[in-house]
Amino acid sequence: MKKQFQKKKILIIKFGGLGDFFLSMQAFNAIRIHHFKDELVLLTEKNYVKIANKSGYFDKIKSIERSIFYFLDRLTIKKLINISKINFVYDLQTSKRSSSYIRLFYGTKTQWSGIAENCSHPHKNPRRNFIHTNLRLKDQLKDAGIKSYPKANLNWITKNVKPYDFKNYAILIPGGSKKRKYKRIPIFIFNEIIKKLLAQKIKPILIGSKDDESVCKQINKYNSSVINLCSKLDLFELAMLGKKSKIVIGNDTGPMHLMAQLDCLTLSLFTKYSDPILCGPQGKNVKILNVDNYDLTTKSIEKIINNC
């Protein structure tokens, strides 16, 4: 008589910004393929539950609101998840906070991939903090025994999403996290970009979240011909709009990573405060400009727009 196969229960930990979450999609996909017979549980935050559900990578999704005290996180997790049933943990956040969660598993046989002290599958690369996020995750999973790391197919994100009836348009993302406004390029550069788009008869569409309403209103006031859809689209509608656009131009912010992975023509503008080598968008049609010289930047942007 054949022994009945028992599913393992795999816990994946991932929080962080939207861009960081999308940079983890390839890792999610690799874990799903490797553990195709097992039950995958994602521990994340509320903002990512809908995305994670629609992705199909996970069997269960648990979200917590992180506290300033790590021990309170652990108490919440213990209420949400049956710790004794978890066979393996992939800590893709690899922060001090998430590493502290290993204490929940003391005295169990649970294996752990990450950087927590005395974990079973440590990420050993001494240069892990000096390589791109996606490469770091790939390297971490390799140390955990996952050798295959295929590109994730994100077609699911636009499934059953009604397309907008716009033609010949570009998406502009002039905002970004209100906690990191230093990553935003000056508004006057976006005003110049709009002039160059209109000269090519390409309609500019402004996109953003509530944090970006002020900057989008300022740009719209100066350029009445743009369409301002700030705070009017969810992430799935934005993805559909991006797939049909001529080009997506924006700051170093989360939605740019989504657009890049959908293989939209993506022009990501970086200030000196973030490094694209470590966290730049990745995709087939990504172009990155470091905005440190106004004349060179506008000339480069004009050349890209003229060829799109």
Rank of each mutant, 00 (worst) to 15 (best):
K179I: 08
Q140R: 04
N293R: 03
I277M: 11
S100W: 05
L92S: 01
D295R: 11
N293W: 02
R180K: 14
T271M: 07
E117L: 14
M25V: 14
D295G: 11
I68V: 14
K14I: 00
I115Q: 09
S209P: 07
L137I: 00
S55I: 02
W156L: 10
A30H: 00
Q200L: 13
F36E: 15
N29L: 02
N307M: 07
I193C: 09
I77P: 10
A52P: 08
K221C: 11
R103P: 03
Q26I: 00
K124G: 04
K196D: 15
G107N: 06
D275G: 03
F166E: 08
Q282M: 08
L135A: 10
L229A: 08
D38M: 06
D292E: 15
N125S: 05
P276T: 01
L172N: 07
K162H: 13
Y294E: 13
F88Y: 05
R127Y: 10
S63K: 06
C264W: 03
G250Y: 06
L75H: 11
N82W: 04
L258V: 06
K210D: 13
G16Y: 00
T76F: 06
P122R: 07
Q282P: 06
I247K: 06
V161E: 14
A52H: 08
K85P: 05
G176R: 01
D275R: 05
L104R: 07
K46T: 14
K60T: 11
K54N: 07
Y182E: 15
G56L: 00
Q282L: 12
I51K: 02
N168C: 01
I205G: 04
V248Y: 06
K7R: 01
D252Y: 02
L154H: 04
L278N: 01
I207S: 15
Y273L: 06
M259A: 15
